[in-house]
Amino acid sequence: MSSSDPLNTLCSPTWCPGCGNLAIWAAFKKAAEEKKWDNTNSVMVAGIGCHGHIVNFVNLASFEGLHGRAIPVATGIKLANHKLNVFVFTGDGDCLGEGGNHFLHACRRNHDLTIFLHDNAIYGLTTGQTSPVSPHGFLSKSTPAGNPDEPLRPLSVAISAGATFVARAFAGDIPKLAKLMISANDHPGLAVIDILQTCMTFNKDYTLNFYRENTYELGPDYDPTDKAAALQKALEWGEKKIPLGIIYREEKPSFESQIAQIKEKTLTEVSPAGRNLKDLWEKYS
């Protein structure tokens, strides 16, 4: 983090050494540099969790809201100024636990948002409890006898709910992640990347080696436009069976593209001052 990097701030990252968030941070800055995402065209929104600290370390205007609530805040920003690139940073607890309902409905409505799901399968900031994606049998402070719950497969939820760009990446491969972040943002509609990351401190199951050994890249033969096949792919998990890359892609009008009021100008580009209510007075008399 050289201070000469215009994307850095005066704050140094506070994540643990080896944290996957460091790689996600690096990949995002790489993508931002390449695509010239800056304070004239981009905004970041984060929830609460270790991931949320990222807003302090990137020189882009941002909103850090409440646990689970990043997506509705991002939705409001996009509707007010749809010309902005709106990046949502959220964690597995943030997005799938506390904020599950918002995730579901944002996918369904196909808002033109780019969601980065920091997925370490653990609650890190609260020092290590089981998350909605922790495996069955997982040992943690909240499940000392082993997790009795089955994990959620977030990308299957995203596809079922109606997201139109659904991908998975491994945080350890910064160049690939950066490329995927760019594709996700270029996609008109709701894009979500499930970013597999380590939590060196609390998740002893999903280690760097675990991800290296068990993930694989979807090849050129894979057709991401086949929804049924994509759903099956999104449900895949296990030994050597964790697919990476674009799992599903669909061309469909985004929510924002269907709203007449913002066809040309953004909401905020038109002054709301001095409206004439004459027609309404007649209607209500």
Partner: peptide
Amino acid sequence: FNYIYKQPEDEISAINMCLGAAFAGA
């Protein structure tokens, strides 16, 4: 009158959407 009304999924979303829109200047 060039404003947007959006039906959200719940009241939590309602206020957070408003905060996002207001943060962006609406």
